[in-house]
Design a protein around this nucleic acid. Sequence first.
DNA 1: CAGTGAGCGAGCTTCCGCTTGACTT
Length: 804
Amino acid sequence: MSKNLVIVESPAKAKTIEGFLGKDFVVKSSFGHIRDLSKKNISVDIQNDFKPEYEIPEDKKKIIAELKKLSSEAEIVWLASDEDREGEAISWHLYEALGLDANKTRRIVFHEITKTAIANAIENPRSIDLNLVNAQQARRVLDRLVGYELSPLLWKKIKPSLSAGRVQSVAVRLIVEREEEIRNFTATSSFRVIAKFEIDNKYGKAELLAELSKRFNSKEETIAFLEKVVPAVYTILEVEKKPAKKSPAPPFTTSTLQQEAARKLGFPVAKTMMVAQQLYEEGKITYMRTDSVNLSDLALHLAKEEITNQYGKEYVHIRKYTTRTKGAQEAHEAIRPAYMNLSTAGHDDSQRRLYDLIWKRTIASQMADAQLERTTIDIGISTTKTEKFLAKGEIIRFDGFLKVYSESSDDEFQEDETNALPPVEAGEVLGMDEITATQRFTQSPARYTEASLVKKMEELGIGRPSTYAPTISTVQKREYVTKGDRDGIIRHYTQLTLKKNNIVENAKSEKTGFEKSKLFPTDIGSLVNNYLVNNFGKILDYHFTANVEKEFDEIAEGNREWSGMLKEFYGPFHTTVTTALESTEKVKGERHLGIDPKTEREVYVKIGRFGPIVQLGETESADGEKPRFAGLRKNQSIETITLEESLELLKLPRLVGTYQNLDIIAAVGRFGPYLMHNKKFISLPKGEDPLTVETDRAIQIIEEKKIKDAARTLKTFDKDTDLKILNGRYGPYIAMGKKNIPLPKNADVEKLSLADCKTIAEAYLKTKENSPKKSAKTSTAAPKKKSPAKKPGSKSSASKKTKK
DNA sequence: CAGTGAGCGAGCTTCCGCTTGACTT
């Protein structure tokens, strides 16, 4: 009906813009891309200049139908997707899929969502930039070729359902190599010497801590130094004061928001994005997937007003930040509050905290520098010329932006705390209270957190704001990487103290290396990575993306033909894939650990069907004896396990003792350590070791489990002991043999007869057979996927989220 | 929920980037 149809990418944006344009405009959203290569096969005609075969995915058909109808009725269709490579492609796909008429189609772009910006865009339409579209097609096709040729290779060589891609494989590589660095790291130690001086001058009494200009590598050197300074006199040589300043960090991009929300609020990146999305949809913040640090003029103006009102005009310093990130496309503004004068917003705690962070960061970015004064005091030692003590301090003369916000750092081991120093003057002689020399160790590189991995990926130009969080979830879903904690280790160190002319040595210990929510590579992650790095080094290269981006840019500028670029890449790539496929050998990452002294058989560690295992003996041995296997424990890995640890594992299953004339066996299975008694499995509680658990304790655990099971049993039948009604996590259910059948919500357990149960069970199993695509055979391989078992009759059997 | 590991081998898995819901678990 309307004269003008405007199509943007996001519905929230559509709503805002519609308000700015008059009645003659209707604004709709495409919800992102509307066409793509088919998921089922590679969908690229390689022989025919890599022609992509596009289709409209099922969930976009309704949108396309609606847009088609509206566009046929409109006089002018305005394609207003983002002004980057992907946005240009969206416009082109819309043009093609909707069958638009060139004469009534206009391409417009705007950088900020204000009435004037949009009016301005409408005044200055252009046509679709096909070079930019082709650059996007090259990107899309290259990613498809890499992903859909490498993944099947992994299925064949390593394990089904694995995946590889330009982005995810490099992300995994970063984590695997960081782990290697940590493993190869050897800590060295040095002695850090700190003196405590007593000041007593015209300004009063005070204490002054100062560090020696040199660290000693050995205890002997340290002691020699301390002995040398026993008779020393300490004099202040110089007091140097220097002005310094600190500037605020730029406004948030997706990546920096994820980092700060992780550091300051402890949010995983997926949570940050979810909460930001909620705030965006409420109109509280601007778009949350952006690589731009730019703020609109309107935003700057309002920030200035807000800062003046709240803190005074001396706190205002309007700044224009420029993006230095590799490959940034800057189709949006930085992430900022929609209304600068709204200092709090959000419906729940997470929303309020994230909004607060965004508000403060944005406001601070437009505030004055903090003015500091850094003081260094040099303290001379009368008995040596080669060393001196230094005291460093810092005071804030003008807080500026620090009044509102200060950025956190990833560095967990910041040792230098800076505070104000007491007033002193050159020439003063100081009283020495004590000198402490503490052995300090160098730290291994830190494991990545989700957020620090995003930071690294952004630096390398790998991935985009819309994919950081999904990529991190993919590599975890594939079990290449797990998020976990590491207990620290106790480290012993030496401390030497000089006090009242005596040198005392103390042996001390500290806990070090404790890590929480860090990314660890799994064995399969390392295995896949090593295989890919060895065979596809070019793609796994940290600079691969940056290099192809340069070529995409050439295509975008019209200086290069896109199918030619792909041909150059695909030729050698495909040859490598083909040769790799020809060798039929499976990749198992096998390591030979040595020989078991008892049986004199070889011990190996490798990846088995269900994960890493140790193997005792050959698969095809001359004496026909079969090998024995044992799974690795959670905190063990193929790369680090020793022969001794492997032999320990091979001691299982082990006979613990007997109870009620039946054997108790301890072993480790798919779900961790367990006891087996009377053909029943009983998980070993945390802290119990299957290798050492004793009979008495085992009996206790078995009895506890029996009591628990009894509490779980709601009803049994004498005629059929195979069928029971139990109480589970999701309410009462029928346990029939190995199958579990949930009971209807309103079922009265008391009144149910055996026949009733059987009827319910049969009905349930029947619907279950029919509902999934294929009838579920006994699933041999990956038992991960569960068929969506619907409860019969009740559609709204909404089981509320279970908290763990 | 469930507690294997050999070998055979149906039928399936998979990429990156744009965008939101409609669904479980």
